[in-house]
Computed example of a mutant assay.
Amino acid sequence: MHPFTSLTLWLWLSASALFLPLGWPLILLGCGTFFALLLWQPARHRWRIIAWLMLPMAAGLWLIHGEWFAQLLTGDALKSSHPEFAMALWFKLLTVINGSQIWLQYVPTERFIRALFASRLPASFAYLLAGPLLLVEQLRQQLNTIREAQLARGVPLDGRFWQRIISLPALLFPLASNTLSELSIRGAALDMRGFRYCPKRTTLNPPADSQWQTLLRYGLILLILIEGGIALWW
Rank of each mutant, 00 (worst) to 15 (best):
M1Q: 08
F4C: 14
S6K: 13
L9P: 02
W12G: 13
W12P: 09
L13Y: 03
L13N: 06
S14A: 14
S14Y: 01
A15C: 10
S16L: 15
L18P: 03
P21I: 14
W24N: 07
P25S: 15
P25K: 08
P25W: 05
G30I: 11
C31V: 15
T33W: 06
F34D: 08
A43T: 06
H45L: 13
H45F: 09
R46S: 08
R48I: 02
L63T: 13
G66K: 07
Q71L: 11
L73K: 04
G75P: 04
D76L: 13
D76P: 00
L78H: 08
S81V: 05
S81R: 00
H82I: 09
P83S: 09
E84S: 07
F91Q: 12
F91C: 08
K92M: 12
L94C: 15
V96P: 10
I97P: 01
N98G: 14
G99R: 04
S100H: 09
Q101W: 05
Q101E: 15
W103V: 11
E110T: 03
F112I: 10
L116S: 12
F117Y: 09
F117R: 00
A118Q: 08
A118K: 02
A123M: 05
S124M: 07
L134R: 04
E137V: 11
Q138P: 01
Q141K: 05
Q142C: 04
Q142A: 14
I146H: 02
R147H: 06
F161N: 00
A170V: 02
S177I: 04
L183S: 08
D191F: 02
G194E: 01
R196I: 13
Y197F: 11
P199T: 05
T202R: 04
N205P: 01
S210N: 07
Q211L: 13
W212E: 10
W212M: 10
W212G: 02
L215D: 12
L216M: 15
L216Q: 05
G219H: 04
L220Q: 09
L222Q: 00
I226W: 07
E227N: 01
G228M: 03
G229I: 05
L232V: 12
L232H: 00
W233M: 13
